Computed example of a mutant assay.
Amino acid sequence: MARWVPDTPERLQRAALELFAERGYEQTTATEIAQAVGLTERTFFRHFSDKREVLFHGQQSLTDAFVSGVRHAAPDLQAVELAASAIRSAAFLFPDEKRSQSRARQRVIDGNPALQEREALKLIRLGAALADALRARGVDDLAAEVAAQTGVMVFGIAFARWIRDGEQRSFGQIVDEVSRQIGDVVRPLHTGT
């Protein structure tokens, strides 16, 4: 009987990324991923519905962190400030030691249109959850949608910069920079100039 080993999903993720980089996403099977860490295909499917989900494991944690950031934010914040709080509350999911794994994951996604579609769907769902959390805080529909979409855009740009080769700044530092830059870009819309 196989002995239980902790962190099985993470081990499967690391093995999958290595195999995807070595052989390609389409050429790698769930069985090969499981065998790479000494597990069976059945164990793989206990943790993931298919090999695609190896790349998207943790999506619920990201959504939960965003929603928690809105729920626990100061009561007097505006909608966009609440969205910024959501992003900051998720920054712990992107520690520096996970940057190389995130880069490898993104390379796999960038090389496969079906995975790109799944990544886009993830961001849409994240935006919908953020908008719902903002509405639950009493933000009106339009402000909730604008703030949620802005928040997801800031997150996406910050993530892309965080995984760039040679980038050393923390995810939180990059989020702050992107937030300021987006504010500068859209300010003329507000002032009418």
Results as ranks from 00 to 15, higher is better:
Leu130Ile: 15
Pro113Asp: 08
Glu97Arg: 15
Phe92Glu: 07
Arg103Met: 05
Asn112His: 13
Pro95Asn: 03
Gly111Met: 10
Val80Trp: 11
Arg103Ile: 01
Phe94Cys: 00
Asp64Gly: 02
Glu81Thr: 06
Ala131Arg: 11
Gly69His: 02
Gln116Phe: 05
Gly69Ile: 01
Lys122Cys: 12
Gly69Pro: 08
Asp64Ala: 04
Leu77Thr: 11
Ala131Met: 01
Phe94Leu: 01
Leu77Cys: 09
Ser102Asp: 04
Ala79Phe: 05
Gln78Pro: 04
Ala104Gly: 02
Glu117Gln: 14
Leu93Ser: 01
Ser100Ile: 08
Ala131His: 02
Val108Lys: 00
Leu93Pro: 00
Arg107Phe: 08
Leu123Ile: 01
Asp64Val: 00
Phe94Pro: 00
Ala129Glu: 13
Phe92Leu: 11
Gly127Thr: 10
Arg88Asn: 12
Ala84Arg: 15
Ser100Val: 13
Leu123Asn: 02
Arg103Thr: 00
Asn112Val: 06
Glu119Gly: 03
Val67Cys: 02
Ala131Trp: 00
Pro113Glu: 11
Ala65Gly: 07
Phe94Tyr: 07
Ala90Asp: 09
Leu121Trp: 11
Ala73Gln: 10
Leu126Gly: 07
Gln116Pro: 07
Arg107Asn: 06
Ala74Asp: 06
Ser85Gly: 12
Leu123Ser: 03
Gln106Lys: 14
Ala120Gln: 11
Ala74Cys: 01
Gly69Arg: 04
Glu119His: 10
Ile87Tyr: 07
Glu81Ile: 03
Arg99Gly: 06
Ser85Ala: 15
Arg107Asp: 14
Ala133Tyr: 15
Gly111Arg: 09
Val67Ser: 01
Gln106Gly: 04
Ser100Ala: 14
Glu117Thr: 14
Ala90Pro: 13
Gln101Ser: 10
Asp64Ser: 10
Gln106Trp: 02
Arg105Asp: 00
Ile109His: 01
Ala73Leu: 04
Val67Asp: 02
Ala90Phe: 05
Ala128Gln: 15
Gly111Thr: 13
Val80Arg: 09
Arg107Ile: 09
Arg125Thr: 09
Leu82Gly: 01
Pro75Ser: 10
Ser68Leu: 11
Asp76Arg: 14
Val67Arg: 05
Leu82Ala: 01
Arg118Gly: 09
Val80Tyr: 13
Lys98Trp: 00
Glu81Asp: 09
Arg125Tyr: 14
Val67Tyr: 05
Arg71Leu: 09
Ala83Gln: 00
